[in-house]
């Protein structure tokens, strides 16, 4: 009796059984939106860096602190991968010829230990044509070495003319 009633519910006008599509479409759309928006997004994080706070871009005086800082240079080699130097020492590369930023982090930890555990200020000086991912790699290595004071080297702006020229070391 109950089965007969149920069958009647899903029977169309011509007596055939109908498949109800609406709930299925609804669920499919729900799943589609959910999987589009939520699950496979890799979480985004932030790396902190600081620009000159009190000196500004226009100050060209060299302070004692500036002489003691460690400079990470990223040089454009006109090839796929740039060369990275810690001071004047080149940083090792991996098998693909890419700079090994884990090695850079280890070198920075070594420098920190040499200076009695006090992290030296690090300045990242990159060629303008280097891809941004390598700058982030260097910044990531500095953060890994627990260096708190990381800065970026800027081109020097001449206050008189307003023109930009790169600072010389």
């Amino acid at each position: 009796m109950a089965r007969k009633k149920r069958r009647k519910k899903y029977q169309g006008k011509d007596g055939r059984l109908d498949l109800e599509m609406t709930p299925m479409i609804d669920v499919v759309f729900n799943l589609l939106i959910f999987f589009l928006c939520m699950p496979f997004r890799v979480p985004e994080g932030e790396l902190d860096a600081f620009l000159p706070r009190d000196v500004g871009l226009f100050d060209d005086t060299v302070k004692l602190e500036d002489l003691e800082k460690v400079i990470v240079r990223i040089k454009d080699t006109k090839r796929t991968n740039p060369k990275v130097y810690l001071g004047k020492v080149p940083v090792a590369t991996d098998h693909a010829g890419r700079p090994d930023f884990n090695a850079l982090a280890e070198q920075l930890v070594g420098l920190k230990a040499k200076s009695g555990g006090e992290p030296p200020p690090v300045e990242i000086d990159s060629d303008p044509l280097v891809k941004y991912e390598f700058v982030i790699g260097a910044l990531n290595a500095c953060t890994k070495a627990k260096i708190g004071d990381i800065r970026f080297r800027f081109p020097h702006i001449d206050p008189a003319t307003g023109t930009i020229k790169k600072q010389s070391n």
Binding site: E46, L47, A49, F50
Partner: peptide
């Protein structure tokens, strides 16, 4: 402005 954060994938 002196505080800068660079966003990267974790």
């Amino acid at each position: 402005i002196w505080k800068i954060s660079l966003v990267a994938k974790q």
